[in-house]
Design a protein around this nucleic acid. Sequence first.
DNA 1: CTGCGATAAGAGACCGGTCTCTTTACTAAA
DNA 2: TTTAGTAAAGAGACCGGTCTCTTATCGCAG
Lengths: 356, 356
Amino acid sequence: MTKVPSSARPKTVADVARAANVSKATAARVLGGYGVVSDAIRASVTAAAKALDYRPNELARSMTTGRSGIIGVVVGDIENPFFSLAVRGISDAAKASGFNVILANSGEKIEAEKAAVRLLIGKRVDGLIVTPSESRDITHLRDIHRSGRPLALLDRALPDLDVDTVTVDDREAAIRATQVLIGAGHRNIAYVTAVEANGHEYVDLRQIYTSSVRERIDGFLSACRDAGVDRPERHVRLGATSSEATRRLADEMLSHPGRPTAILASDSVIALEILRTIRQRGMRIPDDVSLITFHDADWTGVTTPPITVIDQPVYALGHSVAELLIRRLKGQIQPPERLVLPTAIITRGSVGPPHP
Amino acid sequence: MTKVPSSARPKTVADVARAANVSKATAARVLGGYGVVSDAIRASVTAAAKALDYRPNELARSMTTGRSGIIGVVVGDIENPFFSLAVRGISDAAKASGFNVILANSGEKIEAEKAAVRLLIGKRVDGLIVTPSESRDITHLRDIHRSGRPLALLDRALPDLDVDTVTVDDREAAIRATQVLIGAGHRNIAYVTAVEANGHEYVDLRQIYTSSVRERIDGFLSACRDAGVDRPERHVRLGATSSEATRRLADEMLSHPGRPTAILASDSVIALEILRTIRQRGMRIPDDVSLITFHDADWTGVTTPPITVIDQPVYALGHSVAELLIRRLKGQIQPPERLVLPTAIITRGSVGPPHP
DNA sequence: CTGCGATAAGAGACCGGTCTCTTTACTAAA
DNA sequence: TTTAGTAAAGAGACCGGTCTCTTATCGCAG
């Protein structure tokens, strides 16, 4: 004798109007919370709505109003704690202003990123937050901007695209981290990053299409050169895109006779894999090799020794880029802002003097 | 002389139809990829669409078709790597079938969960995946089900709600982990979980409204009792909901004279905080206290010593719950399935004999 | 040469809201 | 008593697609 589970078409304003014996317009006014309605009518419509279990169709609502209340977010990889934390910052800021978030991840692939943007635009999100995976091909981002939908960039700036952007002082951070290693006596320092390039071999800065990574490498090289290191670009390693790739890369790098005495990792996921490789090879930190990584991931404080990190304000990064976007969504027009948040080095125990 | 950045209203099928000199219906057939159209007309409509930079309005499309191509996901906490990984599994499965994902997190609060469900239903998602934060109040989940929209549960079963569910063998896993500790000689074992309850004091299984946690505690208690432990429920600690709370709880627990010689942590976030507290108190693992945690989080392998864990197939959990849901979305009707995935214990170095 | 079926294109209703414009009823000022 | 003014409710267009139903055209068999 149980009720048939479904098949009951969701109720509409027209259904409620009929039940309450008012016009569709009046019912819509009550249910939509706009216009003027007498208290008596309001009560009876509300009662009818409750009785019928009316739930508004946000889709229909969005179509007429043109606003969906949704912010689209395209990140490189949700699994990377850096992004999960940033997304949390975005979500919190969005929720506080009554917006919701649709998440899509690009896997750092430009084609996936384009598809995601197309999809979100199609869903008529009110605005987008993107971590652009490339600076070469940004036509899809131009399109967003051109279509009048606000766009904001997270963690990675694009010189050619003048929109709200929140990044950290990547170059500065890389310089300081490198100086820490140089100060400890290192001259053979490797920089390991996920960015893919043809040949996995670093040649030139212009080959790096991810702005944050380019900044970091630039800072790294600059600090190395200032310390008189010869051709530091030899020690930039690209292509740590997966744990396997990173493992292979690290293994190859550490088995080499002229192996680095210190490593600077571009994110915590890479650092973890490098740490694993170091352990596996029976080497010790910081005795055999020193390590610094970007992102103060939660685990970096509990290893033995704990890892010295570049602490990025990740949550704030997400929170403020969302706030910038929302400000614009609310109609405030102002010139695009480029926020650069400061980082700090947290000194732990993973840096020591070089040991050849 | 630059073009005005926006204000150009997005083009519609009607615009394209006009430009191509065909009827709206014909243009729609081409652009929507349905119906029959001659090659000549198809070409001219496609050309017109490209010229006008037409982009379909998915909102309008969803409204008439009734399908949005979106799966709504409500998880407890995106920041917890357990959930990020599960979400990744969901996303991958969804993408493979042409679905997209809207993510909302409840913060394990029932009110936020209800709001999220209401929102997603309003957005007319095609189906929902939820990790119910409570088994007491599930009217909102009943509503989903009743409205005919498929619902699937992730990680937590609800006995009263007969829908597709994917969980792991929590009770079994807890028993095995507890037995490992008991086998090492421990009789004073603490179980620490995030679940909140009035008074933070464990009294009764019926007080635990999160099914997975209840299962685990049940298994833990059962294994303890089998080993002749007296009143093991004394050692169940609730309320590790934030890092601060966990820290406080752990600190209090470890400073107590009759402190546990081993700890079983309900997730990796809790374990990390417990580990920090242990270190901070100058205690050592496993000499002073043994530790096992649920979830083989990436960091558990790199601490000294590495942590023995209960390895849950988290990605598969997400992937298969999404597949179950999608199967139903595609119209296949079958009785609700309750999948229980197996776990395994990965023995590392965090368990040793008790040391009073 | 007529008629039938198949194919291609057009006309217009519809989805479920919002919103403008119009109508109605009632109060208050002239 | 007439009239202006206002508050409240109704009628119906509209958003941008989909989809059914109708109409026009063409080939081919009888």
